[in-house]
């Protein structure tokens, strides 16, 4: 599934059947490349994060969560946390390990069961998930072709 298609999906609390919020983005972590967290827009102010492990299921129309208290305010996360917003790849420059820029990440294609990332999508190409080295404040680093 493409992240752009997952955007706006309702996040539902399985115990109360209430909507907690909507998916706005994600954070990713390398080795192997996977979705580390989902960014949510909730009713209150600011953004909230949900760790991928706390997602019960990622359905075609909604994301279900068993423990809604696991949804945390983005400000409470430490920078080292893989779900911290600094690891959001969307809109960041792609930089190879050898310091060459190749476009901007526009979208992420992932498996909604495992959270594994199939491709990072830029305007020009699809970069395989296994090439991902890291996502930080400045860029998405990928391995360089030998």
């Amino acid at each position: 599934m493409l992240l752009s298609k997952a955007r706006g999906k309702a996040v539902v609390d399985l115990t109360t059947a209430e909507t907690i919020g909507a998916v706005t983005g994600c954070t990713v972590a390398p080795s192997p490349a996977h979705i580390a967290g989902l960014r949510l827009k909730t009713r209150g102010r600011g953004h909230h994060m949900l760790h991928w492990e706390d997602v019960r299921s990622f359905g075609p129309d909604a994301v279900s969560v068993e423990e809604p208290d696991r949804v945390r305010d983005e400000k409470d996360l430490e920078a080292g946390d893989q779900a911290h917003a600094v690891h959001n790849p969307i809109g960041k420059a792609v930089l190879t390990e050898t310091g060459l820029e190749k476009g901007t990440v526009m979208d992420v294609e992932f498996d909604e069961q495992s959270g594994r990332i199939a491709h990072l999508v830029t305007a020009d190409e699809q970069i395989p998930g296994e090439d991902l080295v890291g996502v930080g404040s400045y860029a998405v680093v990928v391995t360089a072709p030998q």
Partner: peptide, 11 residues
């Protein structure tokens, strides 16, 4: 003026 970037993507 070039940025110094770690493999984790931080400048």
């Amino acid at each position: 003026k070039k940025p110094v970037v770690t493999l984790a993507g931080d400048d």
